[in-house]
């Protein structure tokens, strides 16, 4: 079985709030000093799911990332976990795309690989938190999909997937080839063994641009995007704790709940 893992490198979600800044002019996050981008955590879990399947059924795992040269680090991380090959989709034309252009580019790369049986993605990228690239890849490829998996196993004909629901989980079965997005309920990604880290360091990552994938530069990246980002901003937060007033505990409790409702937390 040949499984493709889509891995994204993102600004560190654990960036301290005080270091998280946005450039209002470009609507982009300003990389925080001394804080390196990381592999999106859900993608690491997707890699874990793919590797377990490979260990159970044999085959190979290819990791694909769309991003800048620095995304090599994310690819190497998945290679160190045990993936066999890495592909970096890197082209200025890919920049500033949306979920659709990302999925389209990834789908073309998967087609180019040719013999892919399954695509595993994280349930969402931990930066934009959209959670649609996996499904869009499935649509681009015309494959079935199962999202937010907490367990994946191979059957004779396809994959049996446990999906997380709001109040439990369900088991679905999909024929191959298929797309699966994996959730954190699946479990932690493995810690790479040093020999594999070394081997990964020596591996060459294939780099493909728009031309290699036969994509018109005008149809990908910012040019092809269907979602237009108008504004990216940090919601105003009062720095200090707001102590809830009230003469009685009941009053305090009710005032707190009003605040939480206003914040759409409950």
């Amino acid at each position: 079985m040949h499984i493709v893992v889509c891995a994204k490198q993102i600004p560190d979600p654990e960036t301290p709030p005080s270091a998280f800044k946005i450039d209002a002019a470009t609507n982009k996050v300003i990389p925080a000093a001394g804080i390196s981008p990381v592999l999106s955590q859900f993608d690491g879990i997707a890699a874990e799911a793919a590797l377990r399947l490979k260990e159970a059924k044999g085959g190979k795992v290819t990791v694909i990332s769309l991003g800048a040269e620095s995304a090599q680090a994310a690819i190497k991380q998945v290679l160190a976990m045990g993936a066999d090959e890495g592909v970096l989709l890197k082209d200025a034309a890919f920049d500033d795309g949306d979920s659709y252009t990302t999925a389209r580019t990834l789908a073309e790369a998967i087609k180019k690989l040719g013999d892919v049986d399954a695509v595993f993605c994280g349930r969402q990228a931990a930066d934009w938190d959209m959670g649609q690239v996996g499904l869009l890849i499935a649509e681009e490829l015309g494959w079935p999909a199962a999202i937010i998996a907490k367990g994946v196993e191979a059957t004779d004909t396809g994959l049996k997937i446990q999906r997380v629901l709001a109040d439990g989980f369900e088991t679905v079965e999909a024929p191959l080839p298929a797309v699966v997005t994996v959730s954190n309920e699946f479990g932690e990604p493995r810690y790479p063994k040093l020999p594999q880290i070394m081997a990964a360091a020596k591996k060459t990552v294939t780099a493909w641009g728009a031309g290699d994938l036969g994509l018109d530069p005008g149809s990908v990246g910012k040019a092809g995007a269907r979602l237009q980002l108008q504004k990216l901003f940090i919601p105003e937060k009062s720095g200090r704790v707001e102590l809830i007033e009230g003469d009685t505990p009941q009053e305090q409790a009710s005032n707190l709940i009003k605040k939480l409702q206003a914040d759409k937390l409950i």
Binding site: P16, S18, G34, S36, V38
Partner: peptide
Amino acid sequence: MRGHPWRGTALERTT
């Protein structure tokens, strides 16, 4: 990933 062992810290090195 972060060059320090304190996962979950909300502080910066200059705080």
